[in-house]
């Protein structure tokens, strides 16, 4: 290697370049911290304010006026979660399978765009349409089914997208191997495509449910609010859910009401984080022993 002649100007320049480089990564690291700070701030604030008022009675008694507990809201939120999971799960996964596997190219592209556009429709607009069409237009009044339909319409695109992306991620060689040994079409779908894509599908499904559990705006005018356990009739079946007390009671002058808001917020955070953890756990479990390709 030849020795380069000493050049103070070049050294100066390189020093400047190195400084700029360090500066960029310093700022980028700060950006990462900016992402983490709000999470910690929000969770610690809500939990620290709610913990002192937490007791078993919150979980075991219904809301009474603006006090009492949150039993029916917890039951209601989980009921909605199950119903939306069933309806949106079947629809979303089915739609994803169609787009990824069966649809002709042009239709697949078209449906993919529709799914993305539907995902972009603001939740309040979906809720408002549910209110106009179902609650008022079909004379259902506040109804658990109106809420389920509205929430499902919001969540289906996420599930469909996750399903489609993970199905397309399955390696062609794996699928072709299945076809080559003469597997029937439905078996290729079930044993190869869906099985290999299951980590992605399940994760997308559960994360979509986590989003649905935190929705408020679309529920306010479709699910209404109830202080008793949910009923399942089509009409006049308002249902309680955890986000309602947070929004309605947080700025009430009555202490018991604002405590209720904080407790509901804490339960929501626990529920959402539990769902996210479950999603990752399942993904880890499902992706074990899966061949990536041949």
């Amino acid at each position: 290697m030849t020795q380069r002649p000493p050049s103070p100007a070049l050294d100066q320049l390189n020093k400047k370049r190195r400084f700029k480089d360090r500066l960029l990564w310093g700022i980028a690291a700060c950006a990462l911290i900016v992402i983490v700070i709000p999470i910690i701030w929000i969770i610690s604030q809500v939990v620290s304010k709610a913990i002192p008022h937490m007791s078993m009675s919150v979980l075991l008694t219904n809301t009474i006026g603006n006090g009492g507990g949150l039993k029916q809201a917890i039951v209601g939120s989980i009921t909605l979660l199950v119903l939306v999971g069933a309806i949106a799960g079947v629809t979303g996964i089915g739609a994803g399978i169609y787009i990824a596997r069966y649809a002709p190219r042009a239709i697949a592209g078209f449906l993919r765009s529709t799914v993305e556009i539907l995902a972009g429709v603001p939740s309040i607009v979906v809720g408002f349409v549910g209110y106009i069409a179902l609650v008022v237009g079909s004379h259902w009044s506040f109804s658990i089914w109106a809420a389920t339909i509205v929430l499902s319409a919001m969540v289906v695109p996420y599930i469909a997208k996750a399903t489609e992306v993970s199905l397309r991620g399955v390696s062609d060689s794996l699928r072709e191997a299945g076809e080559a040994i003469g597997l029937r079409d439905s078996l290729v779908l079930r044993k190869i495509l869906i099985k290999s894509a299951s980590p992605g599908i399940v994760t997308g499904f559960i994360l979509a449910l986590a989003i649905s559990v935190g929705e408020t705006a679309p529920l306010l005018y479709t699910a209404g609010w109830s202080t008793t356990s949910p009923t399942f009739s089509l009409k006049h079946s308002p249902i309680g859910y955890l986000t309602y007390p947070v929004w309605t009671f947080y700025d009430f002058p009555v202490k018991s009401a604002s405590y209720l808001a904080l407790e509901a917020a804490m339960l929501l955070i626990i529920l959402v984080i539990a769902l996210i953890a479950l999603a990752h756990l399942l993904r880890h479990k499902l992706s074990k022993n899966l061949p990536q390709s041949l």
């Binding site: 992402i35 983490v36 999470i39 809500v46 989003i211 408020t216 986000t243 947070v246 947080y250 955070i269």
Partner: peptide, 24 residues
């Protein structure tokens, strides 16, 4: 892990952002 944090940011309900924004 950063991906998990982003998922939590998505998952935190809108009302809780509102609660935090209004109270804190």
């Amino acid at each position: 892990w950063v991906g998990v944090f982003l998922e939590i940011l998505v998952g935190i309900p809108s009302v809780i952002y509102g609660l935090w924004g209004a109270l804190t």
